[in-house]
């Protein structure tokens, strides 16, 4: 996988647009089972990322990802800032400048473990990990862009019947059941936007 400068900028703009255009939806999801700030927070964070263009895309892919992560950490505001920001920063730490698919598989695995540590959470607790973990499995299994995007969307849907164990939604106990996890939704939007730009081809 080789991303030139134009592709890197396209990737950043697509990631940002995916959450900014769905900010109201994310806020509505968060109002149901959280504090209702997820859409606004993610919009602010990715707005700040966009503001670092065009210089951001001049950086190598790893440096660009680390910068995106740090910007999200500093600007998002909620717990999502450190969680999503850590994911991007660890991807940047783990990826070479010209990653092969195997590099991406290994880097996403590391990044997911960092998110688990940051949130002291595991899959199954109605968090973004419920999207990241199954999507990473599809990536590792050789799935193409369509399969990855489909899994991301389905995985977010699968959080709806889950009981929240972590975060503000856990205060609601069983009332958290029946609502999609906002963090899973934003993760699925970001993944959908990323694979659309990266256009993975199945490796097997």
């Amino acid at each position: 996988m080789s991303l030139d400068r134009a592709a890197r900028e396209k990737l950043v703009r697509a990631l940002a647009a995916s959450v900014i255009e769905h900010a109201d939806e994310l806020t509505n999801l968060d109002q149901a089972i959280g504090d209702g700030d997820h859409g606004l927070n993610m919009k602010r964070g990715f707005g700040a990322v966009i503001a670092t263009l065009p210089g951001l895309a001049d950086k190598s892919l790893p440096e660009m990802l680390k910068t995106i992560g740090m910007t999200l950490v500093m600007k998002v505001g909620g717990a999502s800032g450190p969680l999503v920001g850590t994911f991007f920063m660890e991807l940047g730490n783990a990826l070479p400048e010209q990653p092969a698919r195997a590099d991406l598989v290994a880097a996403t695995d590391k990044a997911i473990n960092a998110v688990k540590a940051r949130g002291r959470s595991e899959a199954g607790q109605k968090t973004l990990l419920d999207v990241l973990v199954p999507v990473q499995a599809v990536l590792a299994g050789g799935g193409d862009a369509r399969a990855i995007a489909a899994e991301a969307a389905q995985a977010a849907d699968r959080t709806t019947p889950m009981l929240a164990i972590r975060g503000r939604a856990s205060f609601l106990g069983e009332r958290s059941i029946g609502h999609m996890d906002p963090g899973s939704r934003s993760a699925s939007l970001l993944i959908g936007a990323a694979v659309n730009v990266l256009e993975f081809e199945a490796s097997s």
Binding site: D37, R44, M74, G77, G78, G81, P82
Partner: peptide
């Protein structure tokens, strides 16, 4: 507060 002054916290 968050960086815009709304409810939230920020690392900086």
């Amino acid at each position: 507060g968050d960086v815009d002054g709304g409810l939230g916290t920020n690392v900086a």
